[in-house]
Computed example of a mutant assay.
Amino acid sequence: MRSFSPADQILFGLMNASLLFTIAYWILGFDRQFATGFAIEDGPVEYGTALMLLVSALVLAWQAVRQFRMGQALAGVCLVVYALIFVFGTGEEISWGQRILGLETPDYLMERNYQEEITLHNIVVGGKQLTKTVFGGGLTVAILLYLLALPALYGKSAVVTRLADRLAVPVPLWRHGIMGVGASVVMLVVDIPRQWEVYELVFSLLTVSIFLAPANLAAFGRRTAT
């Protein structure tokens, strides 16, 4: 089993601490303090998530540059697309800097965004919030499949292994899957306002860890650390 790097020790420490804080607030009944303090809008959890999503994007961009230099154009393009997805996630997390810059919400979004802010994931379409229809439970299932099914199949299924390597998909290690399942269990058990903000933070920390040192390091032209 690959040992924890110094970066992973910090990242997993932050994940564990965030989940333990959430459990402690819930057990002690400090719902209001949690919602208006630890997990408050524009607070440490939300900005931490945005920062980690941005770091994930930068790591993917760095990997893309390496792939282009190695002559792996397809892998490089795929990594650029992945990086742009995380840039989009960063922008959405902080409403594209609306409150930081003091921007006004356009009339179009004021009428269609249930939080009246500059984001796409909070738009209401056909009476349903886009977050719940597109970015909701289905996305959670897809993420868990990525964390659990891909590591299980990589190296055992020739098709999955070839596709993951050709498309430069960073494959999680088992510890990432275990953390993802653990965080999901905590969210199902705990019932406290804004708990899902912590869930997002945990997964943003997970992606940084995965992208820095995926299970398929060799596909990125790097040696596997022991």
Rank of each mutant, 00 (worst) to 15 (best):
A35I: 06
R32A: 11
F86D: 04
V87R: 03
L103G: 12
L188Q: 13
E197F: 07
T224H: 06
A64E: 04
L74N: 02
T119K: 10
F21I: 13
A142Y: 09
K132I: 01
E111C: 08
E117M: 01
G91L: 03
P172C: 09
V189C: 11
L53C: 10
D165K: 12
I40K: 14
G155L: 03
V202W: 08
I210G: 01
L188P: 02
R69K: 15
W62C: 04
S5Q: 11
Q63M: 09
V45D: 05
A57I: 00
G127C: 06
A83F: 00
F34M: 07
I94V: 12
L109K: 05
Q9W: 11
L11A: 09
I40R: 15
L188D: 03
W196C: 08
I100N: 05
V65L: 15
A83E: 00
E41N: 11
A158R: 12
V80A: 11
A75P: 01
A83I: 02
E197I: 05
G91Y: 04
Q63I: 05
V134Y: 07
T105C: 13
R194Y: 08
H176N: 13
F4A: 15
L163Y: 02
T36G: 14
L147R: 03
F68N: 06
F34S: 09
L120C: 04
M187I: 09
A168K: 03
V55P: 00
E41T: 10
F211H: 00
R99L: 11
R112E: 01
L153W: 00
Y108G: 12
I123V: 15
V171P: 00
R223F: 02
S5L: 08
A50Y: 06
L103K: 13
G136V: 01
Y82V: 09
G89K: 06
M179V: 12
R32H: 09
V160R: 07
I40A: 15
V81C: 14
P44F: 08
P193C: 11
P6L: 13
V208C: 05
F220S: 08
V198M: 08
V181S: 09
Y47V: 09
Y108N: 13
L150W: 07
L19H: 07
Q129Y: 05
R222S: 10
L153A: 11
W174V: 05
M179T: 10
G91A: 06
H121K: 15
T161R: 06
T161E: 07
F211A: 00
W26M: 07
L11N: 10
I10W: 11
V198H: 04
R112I: 01
D165T: 03
M1C: 14
V59Q: 07
P151M: 14
Y199N: 10
Y47P: 02
V198E: 04
A83Y: 01
T207D: 06
A183K: 03
L20F: 14
T161H: 07
A17F: 15
F88K: 02
G126W: 04
G48K: 02
L147V: 05
L14E: 06
G97W: 01
P172Y: 04
V45H: 05
L19N: 04
S5F: 01
